[in-house]
């Protein structure tokens, strides 16, 4: 598949992470509130274990990356809890080592990989992707990982392969959100997500083990997660323990919870609203004004062909 080198993607245009940290973000607009505040500059730089990766410019959007602090304190990760600050608060409960990922299903060479073996299997790349949450906010994140396609091809899918199913760790000890609460309900654990095989094999689809030059923090899906940048964030399964190649379309966690609201495809699409709110605009974290949401989150050139002839209202 041809990945077009969009003219707007230039490494020189990317604001450095440190430089970005010093930026007085969001404020210019909020200053309209007429309360001239004194703001200390910048959050602390990343402190996690560093992870080497080669920057892949063809896969780097020109938008400045979101503050690391925001990406690690504002998370939807229901395994820790339903509130945005639950994951950062409870992240220490997750033990990302030892960890294995079982890769099986309709494949010729099923195998259970140790996480450290998996990380060394393919060269790590840094890719700067947009992330659009179904709730109407977005971020820009420099991920580190390798194409999921490399791993899938290595285990050799058979003729019966049609979809790829991801399963997140099930362990209420490490994930308090999975415990039975007073009011019973949350999601049907473990969290299951899925992609069509061609989506899983798409060069943009990243199996991710790090971000911002360091090992993936627990609250962002350690030790390994998927990143599918043209779909709403919840499609990118976190803390994966199993990748299964299947023939039937997987029944995903959010589809089971609210089928009329969260479809299997869940491609970012400004023209198909969530039943309860508009998807036409989004708030980029760190920015004041809303911006228009782009078709396939701005990746239409690369992925629109996957859905040629499909009614995207029906297959939302």
């Amino acid at each position: 598949m041809l990945i077009r080198h969009a003219p707007d993607i230039k490494s020189s245009e990317i604001t450095g992470f440190r430089l970005y940290l010093n930026r007085r973000s969001f404020l210019m607009g909020a200053a309209a509130l007429a309360l001239a505040p004194s703001r200390p500059a910048a959050a602390a730089p990343p402190t996690g274990q560093s992870l080497k990766a080669t920057r892949h410019e063809a896969f780097a959007v020109p938008d400045p990356p979101t503050k690391f602090e925001s990406v690690t304190t504002y998370n939807n990760f229901y395994e820790f809890g339903v509130n945005k600050d639950d994951p950062a608060r409870l992240a220490h409960l997750l033990k990302p080592r030892p960890w294995t990922v079982q890769v099986d299903g309709h494949v010729a060479r099923p195998k259970t990989y140790d996480i450290d073996e998996l990380i060394r299997l393919f060269p790590l790349e840094e890719r700067v992707y947009r992330l659009r949450c179904v709730e109407g906010w977005s971020m820009v994140i420099p991920w580190i990982g390798f194409p999921l396609a490399s791993l899938i091809k290595r285990v050799e899918p058979t003729g019966k392969a049609g979809f790829v199913e991801f399963t997140t760790l099930l362990d209420p000890e490490q994930f308090p959100g999975q415990r039975k609460g007073l009011f019973g309900f949350s999601l049907d654990w473990p969290y299951v997500e899925g992609l069509r095989l061609d989506e899983a094999l798409h060069p943009l689809t990243l199996l991710t083990v790090g971000m911002y030059g360091q090992v993936l923090p627990n609250q962002d899906g350690a030790p390994v997660r998927a990143v599918v940048p043209w779909k709403y964030g919840f499609k990118s399964a976190k803390s994966i323990v199993r990748i299964r190649v299947v023939s039937e379309q997987p029944k995903t966690a959010w589809e089971k919870a609210a089928p009329h609201e969260y479809g299997f495809y869940s491609n970012v699409n400004p023209t198909v609203d969530h039943p309860r709110w508009s998807q036409a605009t989004e708030r980029r974290i760190g920015e004041f004004r809303r911006r228009k949401t782009l078709m396939f989150n701005g990746y239409a050139d690369q992925v629109a062909s996957l859905y040629a002839g499909m009614d995207l209202r029906k297959y939302f």
Binding site: F26, A30, L33, L35, P37, K67, K84
Partner: peptide, 15 residues
């Protein structure tokens, strides 16, 4: 107001 002035409104202050 205090949180606004000390930049403690979180990642998505408007929300």
């Amino acid at each position: 107001v205090y949180r606004f002035q000390t930049d403690a409104l979180g990642a998505n202050p408007i929300e």
